[in-house]
Simulated scan of single mutants.
Amino acid sequence: MSEVDKEVSAGERLPTRMRMLVVIAATVLGLDLVTKVAAVHFIEPGNPIEIVGDFVTLKLIRNPGAAFSMATGMTWLLTLVAIAVVIGVIKIGRTLRSPWWALGLGLVLGGALGNLIDRLFRAPGPLQGHVVDFVSVGWWPVFNVADSGVVCGAILLVALTLFGLNPDGTRGQADESADTDSATGKES
């Protein structure tokens, strides 16, 4: 049995990671909802709370657009994109065997759901709701826990892809050809 076959067999024996993905997503979603409720309750619009001078503040913003206030007139489209992301992550999650992919996809799913809930249920109305953002760090746009989940999860997923780790726990093509070349003594 070749090394690739052994790795695939090992990947097939790994348990699916859907439960891990769901727990991570639920944690991110719960933290996002609780912090948004607290932000709306405790932070007065236009009156930021300083945490570390004026570098880190809590500032309540209602964002109709995406990050960096892009697409402010397309809230309905952002809602549909978020729904597509949720469906895509759940579909991939059913065959997931890598704990690292479960972590990345769980962060993305929890964040997407957090902002989707705002878009569906906050003013001015369904598919038009403005996302509650409240963390301001330096020059970076104001964000929330959901945004952090999406960004951190996406960075992890890109890194996993670059390192050749597949969602099913196996290694990608780039590593297989390098392993084959090293096994046969050929240099790339």
Rank of each mutant, 00 (worst) to 15 (best):
G164H: 01
Q128I: 04
G53W: 12
V23P: 07
G149C: 08
V131A: 07
H130P: 13
V158G: 08
L113P: 14
R97E: 08
I51D: 04
I24C: 03
V151S: 05
F55A: 02
D175T: 12
R94E: 01
P141H: 13
V8K: 07
V158A: 11
M1F: 09
I83V: 12
E50T: 08
V86L: 02
V56G: 00
V89W: 02
S9F: 10
W101K: 04
D32I: 11
L127E: 05
A25P: 08
A159R: 08
L80N: 03
V56H: 00
T184S: 11
D133P: 11
G104A: 15
E187W: 11
K36P: 07
S9Q: 14
S182V: 12
P99G: 09
K59E: 10
V86D: 02
A26Q: 05
T184F: 02
P15A: 06
M70Y: 00
Q173V: 04
T75S: 12
V81W: 04
S69I: 05
P48A: 03
G106C: 05
V151N: 03
W101Q: 08
D181P: 01
I90V: 15
G172E: 08
S182F: 09
T184H: 04
S148N: 04
G104N: 07
T170I: 06
G169D: 05
P141G: 06
S136E: 10
T35C: 07
P124I: 03
S9T: 12
P64Q: 03
R122P: 14
W139M: 14
L31Q: 10
D179K: 15
Q128Y: 04
F121A: 13
L58C: 05
L116I: 10
A38I: 14
D133T: 12
V142D: 03
N166E: 15
L21T: 10
P48D: 02
D32G: 10
V52W: 15
V85R: 14
E176Y: 15
A39D: 09
P64H: 03
R171M: 14
R19Q: 11
A174S: 13
V52D: 01
G114P: 01
A38V: 12
